[in-house]
Design a protein around this nucleic acid. Structure first.
Lengths: 338, 338
DNA sequence: ATGAAAGCGCTAACAC
DNA sequence: GTGTTAGCGCTTTCAT
């Protein structure tokens, strides 16, 4: 008869009482069931059922320091690409019995002061993109961390990512292969390192083909529809508009397609577009998007595996795992007409 | 002599030592700064700086039972609509100093046994959609909860949502207003209550106009591109295909648009489409989508406010807050041609 | 205003 | 195998 149900914590002591054993035994029955007599274990199990006991985590963590929580710091939980990565993280984490605490960048408003204690409570951290809110250098002791999707040489974090430079190079190279000469590039924000790498890939591809780099063909902005949309307007009002555009994200690419249609430019006949990421949506837009596919789910998956290894005390084997990217050719690209 | 300083926790005791006071004073300096002498506080503050002390949450929570963590259980962190809601949640939570623990449905694989303890550690729960992994009825004492985006009468949870029935009714009614008679409906999965309400809205609108309900016009599936895509094929192969389709989500609608184009059906000339949610993407697809807009961000915002009130011990004022929805007419709908 | 000391619920030595 | 006991880091009486 539990009358003390005013949200009163059922403690291990209660269980012990009901089972007629000591708290230590209850604890053992929970933690190392094989080290406790079969009979006793049954009594304890019953008592747990009866009382509705639930282990109180803070106390438990107190000792063994395991919260089974992984922190993910993500730039933007709204970005469909990152969302897929996070999905990979969550699913993999769940397989290993970990929960995922997701911190969006909006929450960077949370002051360091209140953030720090939290870091103390999680078992590991996954940085999804580099503009993390935490001033890593000012923390002496942080939980194990891995970085995903963006490589940041200065912090020597184990990282899982694609070769953004080569990927971008290949994307642009493809456009060149099918005959394009005037190729523009819409980059992500400068503070993201991946923007830098992708831009470099673009630049190298252009230069290698012996064509002069056109400053006016190189725009940048956030990885959003709007950026793509406005960038297109800008590009097409150039005296010599490009015949193809390489975008740093699919979302951007969709923005440019949208705007292109609006001002009556036919894709891919008059303008070729290639995106980046291969989000699910890419194949459903009109025309279906040619894009550099990233292994979205796998990035998340690998990141967790890597982090879990760190948690086990494994040394940081390789400092950076490279995943493959692949150009998916759909219908937003074609030979230049003119 | 603790030489075991391999990432050793800096404890409050250390701070106390350095400051030359007792741990109790340090604790007070942190928790009720005004109750401690100005001088002492300075000494403590300095010591904290020097040692790099960070409060250890599990111990702190131990007593005052405040983790400052809100748990969000979401159906699908990949859904752009839910993602926007979550954004609203995170941002609002952050304003009030709360962090958000996000549990995707994939993580339902985590057994109750390991989930329950976690529930014990969070200050409150937001259910985003009803198919939550937790067997609410089997838990005696759960943290305060609110439900968002879906109304579930049986559990009497404070809920924040739109009137799905009326919204659907209005959407279908609009189609009727502009002249459509053969209107199909692609519903969400049956286990979501909102599918039920939206379907009812559709049914009532059809019936009120005196038209017979056509079973063959009523399809259902997951809220995905694929569902929309396959549903369209099915609908258009009917002897009397519909002239308009009401979809339970924008994603679905985009799927049907995609497929419609593929088989050469002109939108909106030959077929009108209306979606639901008004995700950002809706205005960027071709043609821009007419859709029933939900206040995505605000749903999350309100949910947090509501939950926070509960946490303060406020009684559940109204059991259900209704937010407004609004039909956004874009270019995927037009008068029927024939 | 501050220190000493008693817990909080749990785990881990250490005995029996 | 199981109970006793001593903490874990922190907050909070209760003295002073």
């Amino acid at each position: 008869m539990k009358q003390n149900n005013t949200a009163a914590q059922v403690t291990m002591k209660d269980v012990a009482n009901v089972a007629g054993v000591s708290t230590a035994t209850v604890s053992r029955a929970l933690m190392m069931p094989e080290k406790v007599a079969h009979q006793t274990r049954e009594k304890v199990d019953n008592a747990i059922q009866q009382t509705g006991y639930i282990p109180y985590l803070p106390s438990r963590n107190h000792k063994n320091n395991q919260s089974k929580i992984l922190l993910v710091m993500s730039l933007d939980i709204t970005d469909p690409f990152l969302t897929d990565v996070i999905q990979g993280i969550q699913q993999t984490a769940a397989e290993y019995g970990y929960m995922v605490l997701l911190l969006g960048n909006q929450q960077q408003s949370i002051e360091q002061a209140s953030l720090s204690p939290l870091l103390n409570q999680v078992d590991g951290i996954i940085l999804l993109g580099a503009n993390s809110p935490l001033d890593i250098h000012h923390h002496d002791s942080l939980p194990p961390m891995v970085m995903a999707n963006e490589y940041l040489p200065e912090l020597k974090l184990p990282t899982i990512h694609i070769d953004n430079l080569t990927a971008a190079f290949n994307a642009v190279n493809y456009l060149q292969q099918i005959g394009h000469r005037r190729i523009a590039c819409i980059s992500g924000p400068a503070h993201l390192h991946l923007s830098h790498y992708r831009l470099q890939g673009y630049i190298q591809a252009i230069q290698r083909s012996g064509i002069a780099l056109e400053k006016r063909y190189m725009l940048s902005g956030s990885l959003t529809f709007e950026t793509g949309s406005t960038a297109l307007t800008q590009l097409m009002s150039l005296p010599q508009p490009p015949s193809a555009i390489f975008c740093h994200s699919d979302i951007m690419a969709i923005g440019v397609i949208h705007q292109a249609k609006k001002i009556g430019i036919k894709i891919p006949e008059e303008l070729s577009i290639v995106g980046f990421d291969d989000i699910a949506l890419a194949q459903y837009v009109d025309p279906p998007l040619t894009t550099m596919a990233q292994p979205r789910y796998n990035i998340g998956h690998q990141a967790v595996l890597m982090l879990l290894e760190l948690l086990q005390g494994c040394p940081v084997k390789s400092n950076s795992v490279l995943l493959d990217s692949e150009l998916i050719v759909r219908e937003s690209t074609a030979k230049p007409h003119s």
